[in-house]
Write a protein that binds this DNA or RNA. Structure first.
Length: 168
DNA sequence: GCCAACGTTGGC
DNA sequence: GCCAACGTTGGC
């Protein structure tokens, strides 16, 4: 990644996000074990997060891969490789993400596909982000926030890349 | 394990 | 449309 973020690709601004996951349900290793280190980000069942996936997240965007739980930290960078599209798991009665209110004609939930890019050389713990004054307004750090998909502002992204010693 | 914060549900 | 009850998230 070069300096001067936000970068553009094909005239399009690349936005940055944070994808939160509880590692006991889906971890970085799960992503790394996927074919081509690509996987689908399914099961989001929160309307605000759904709206971001459906309306804003674009292929080429970048995201921090964040583990919640025992050792909360941003640990890797992934690339968004699709726009949002209907989350079929909502249609499957055997899926833990089944939602009978969702239909093919009227999908209620959306997902996108992601690809692993790199681990952060130094994972950035939640604690370190809280301790960094320039990250004070970060969405992740807002009290009581529970979104699993969060926007990351360009300056926040740069700071976290630096903290994570991520340089390319 | 606790509990604050938040989203969702459902009775009215 | 209001709001109390409930379930879930997630840091600590």
């Amino acid at each position: 990644m070069k300096s001067g973020f936000p970068e553009t690709r094909d005239q399009q601004v690349i936005n940055t996000w944070l994808l939160k996951t509880e590692p006991s349900s889906y971890s970085l290793d799960d992503l790394l074990n996927c074919d081509k280190r690509c996987d689908t980000w399914e099961g989001v069942r929160n309307y605000q997060a759904r709206n971001l996936i459906r309306d804003q997240i674009m292929p080429g965007d970048l995201a921090l891969f964040y583990h919640s739980g025992k050792a909360p930290a941003a640990i890797a960078v992934v690339e968004i490789i699709t726009a949002g599209y209907p989350d079929d798991t909502a249609l499957d009665p055997r899926s833990p993400y089944y939602d009978p209110r969702s239909t093919i004609e009227n999908p209620r939930w959306f997902r996108m596909d992601v690809r692993w890019l790199d681990n952060l050389p130094r994972p950035v713990p939640l604690k370190a982000m809280r301790a960094e004054p320039r990250l004070a307004t970060m969405a992740l750090l807002k009290k009581g926030q529970r979104l699993s998909v969060l926007p990351v502002e360009p300056h926040e992204w740069r700071i976290i890349m630096t903290m994570g010693q991520y340089t390319t």
